[in-house]
Simulated assay, not measured.
Amino acid sequence: MTLVTETAVKALLETPTTTRVRPRYEGSNICTWIGFKHVNYLVEEAVLDHFRQAGLPARALYEEHGLGLDIVSLDSRILHAFHMDDIADAEVTPWTKDDDSTIGFKVTIQFERNGEIHKAVTSKVRVSLRIDTYLEAAGEVPAGLARFAVAVLGDDLERESAAVAPAEEEILASLTAGANAYGWKWNIPYPYCHFTERLQMSGYLRLMEEGKDRFVADRGISIKTLLDDRRWIPVVPRSDIRILDEALMEEDLYTVYTVEEVFKDFTYTSRMDFYVLRDGKLVKTATGRIVHGYAVIENRRDWSLVNFDQRVIDAISAKAPQA
């Protein structure tokens, strides 16, 4: 008997849920603070548990109906820092309009600290149900979920026309030409993928984090450099990412990190674009933005935001340092 009942779909699309979440130990890289990637993992876990509570868990959707649950859009604001061992409550509120072709949610995560309740994260999430084509067909998509099912991720969007690619050795130069940008080529390994073949949202989050790391190292202000020089750490108040098409296991992914705006001397916004070379064309598979600032480590427990100095402004603005 199908698990996709009218009651289950109604609960998925209409009934809010709350789940208890805790950041993973891996996400505590500097002192005991949790980085933006793992904060977004908490959002992902809350959405997955919403599907479970509705009676439509990701495993059963795939095994019984051949539908892969893919988070295709994630737009998150971090309002308070998470620490190692924090326990938080994540409320997932369905946010799907009648004409939507993706399943939408608003996620709010809050925790208690020193007797006060803090709203730590707000996020908007969109989910597609990818029809599995790697194995034999699982049968007709259940009617209640049919409008959210896609043959290829991004089918719900009007895609840009793929550009004819230059010679492979010229691709990165062409993608970064005339821009305050850094790019690299990377072969997609299986640990970044799911449902046997495609890069998943958590993989893109890992690449967004790596993009920052690569960019500042290229500009002479690597993470460790500023840690050692002045105990500065990067902080991310906001990030968003949207999957536009599929990137497949063992394809070469071209990633471009472009600084779009430096806001006074406090934050800067970078765009990240992801491409694969397919049939002689550059196919954009995802795009997103990430906002960065810096904080100074005051002690093992506390940090505070700081303004950029001229060295940092020059580095992120692609200006040569003053002699």
Rank of each mutant, 00 (worst) to 15 (best):
E63L: 15
H194L: 02
A60I: 02
D229F: 05
N114G: 08
F195V: 10
L61M: 12
L67E: 04
N40W: 07
S202L: 08
R289E: 12
F36T: 14
S28Q: 12
T19C: 10
F36A: 15
E209P: 02
A151R: 14
L244C: 13
D98Y: 02
H83N: 09
K119Y: 02
V283C: 06
I243D: 00
R77Y: 10
F308I: 03
C193R: 04
L172H: 04
E197R: 10
D229T: 14
I188A: 07
D100Q: 00
E14L: 09
L74T: 00
D85W: 11
R77E: 12
T18W: 03
L56I: 03
R214A: 05
V291A: 11
V125G: 12
A8S: 11
S270N: 13
F82L: 12
A137F: 10
A179C: 06
L61P: 04
V150A: 11
T133H: 15
I71M: 13
E260G: 00
T225H: 13
V262T: 11
T15P: 00
K281P: 03
T176S: 10
S28T: 13
S76G: 10
E64R: 15
V107H: 02
I30G: 01
L277F: 08
D86I: 08
G55R: 10
S73L: 09
Q322D: 02
W232G: 05
R52F: 01
E116V: 04
H65L: 03
E197Q: 12
G293Q: 07
A120L: 01
L56N: 01
V152C: 13
F111L: 10
E246S: 07
A173L: 06
P166G: 04
R113I: 01
D99C: 06
G68D: 14
A295C: 00
S28D: 08
D279F: 01
D302C: 02
